[in-house]
Design a protein around this nucleic acid. Structure first.
Length: 340
RNA sequence: GUUGGGUGACUCU
């Protein structure tokens, strides 16, 4: 049973939930019943893919077979519901927990606080933090990071730096995620140099920089069109043991595109492929946008078909970008063809 | 053996 569970967990982590569900069928054939851990893993896997309805069905099945939900089941469903925007149902589950003798813990609260924050409902989020404290749970580094991220995204002021100080006073020393959140927020407020200063500080704070932190800095510096410095940061990241990833490449391409230097962006796309990366939907859309920006819509259309040949799916943004570009050069007919 | 936080593309801001 544990072997199956470990396999199922591995499949779920690799977003292969359907294969995992196949294993469940197999388990049933060999008369191996699912236990709560297996159920929780499957619920988690489904939620991660946004398939919350199916997760809820599975959770119902649990109840039917006499396997009652534990706090992990509840927390996972609460988080999953929040992530698809069903905060109402998530709050209902919290209420249900109290009746089911399974009191919400810091993870339950934090999942909801995150949900509220992601919808921009800062005041309600802060209210829930207060409630959580009343309930005996002090905000931890994760709670603080969520709030810092949220306050940056909503108000774009100095408040997040104050929150960071408060976090330290509370005995939470910032980790790499907290630092990156601050760094990203500062970059998006056009305070890249302050962000760079903070990044220099993390070595003294016992944190190991990662590629996400560098990607934020690279994006910030690209948005200021400091492209040479952006490459300096890539070199620095590599020296720090952080390998550039698909987001690093796309961020740099976007920097070139925004600066109207789409040929350099296309060159980077080639380099990226040479380095063994597959451009994804965002990468292709970035290039299409860059081409449209300089009115090279025919090449943009060719990138779209290239994307299809590479088995890379397009999405609404890809189309919006192209349609916008086509309309701007007066090719409304081609734009309409895309819609049809 | 299972649960909460940070990075890239369009439009608006």
């Amino acid at each position: 049973k544990i072997t199956y569970t470990i396999l199922i967990d591995g499949l779920c982590r690799g977003s292969m939930v359907d294969l995992a569900l196949g294993l469940v069928v197999q388990m049933r054939h060999v008369d191996c019943s699912l236990d709560i851990i297996t159920y929780n893993i499957l619920v988690d896997g489904l939620c991660k893919l946004g398939r919350v309805e199916e997760a809820l069905e599975l959770a119902d099945e649990m109840t039917q077979v006499g396997c009652s939900w534990d706090i992990i089941t509840y927390n996972k469903l609460i988080d999953g519901l929040c992530k698809v925007g069903s905060l109402h149902s998530a709050f209902r589950l919290i209420a249900e927990m109290r009746h089911a003798d399974c009191a919400p813990d810091i993870i339950s609260y934090t999942a909801l606080i995150n949900g509220l924050c992601k919808e921009g409902r800062v005041h309600e989020a802060l209210g829930l933090v207060a409630k959580m404290i009343q309930d005996g749970f002090s905000p931890d580094i994760i709670t603080y990071t969520i709030l810092i991220d949220c306050v940056f995204k909503v108000s774009r002021m100095d408040q997040p730096l104050g929150l960071a100080d408060k976090m330290r006073q509370d005995g939470c020393s910032p980790d790499i995620i907290a630092y990156s959140t601050l760094i990203d927020g500062l970059c998006k407020e056009d305070r890249v140099d302050l962000a760079l200063g903070l990044a220099a500080e993390i070595r003294h704070a016992d944190c190991t920089p990662d590629i996400i932190m560098y990607n934020s800095l690279i994006n910030g510096i690209c948005m200021e069109e400091r492209l040479i410095e952006a490459f300096g940061l890539v070199a620095k990241a590599i020296r720090d043991g952080c390998s550039p990833d698909i987001i690093t490449y796309t961020t740099l391409m976007n920097g070139f595109c925004k600066a109207g230097k789409v040929d350099e962006a296309l060159g980077l796309a080639d380099k990226m492929i040479q380095d063994g990366w597959f451009p994804d939907t965002v990468t292709y859309s970035t290039l299409i946008g860059g081409l449209c920006k300089v009115y090279r819509v025919d090449l943009a259309l060719r990138v779209l078909s290239k994307m299809r040949h590479a088995d890379c799916s397009s999405n609404i943004v890809t189309y919006n970008t192209l349609i916008d570009g086509l309309v701007k050069v007066g090719r409304v007919d081609s734009a309409l063809k895309l819609v049809a």
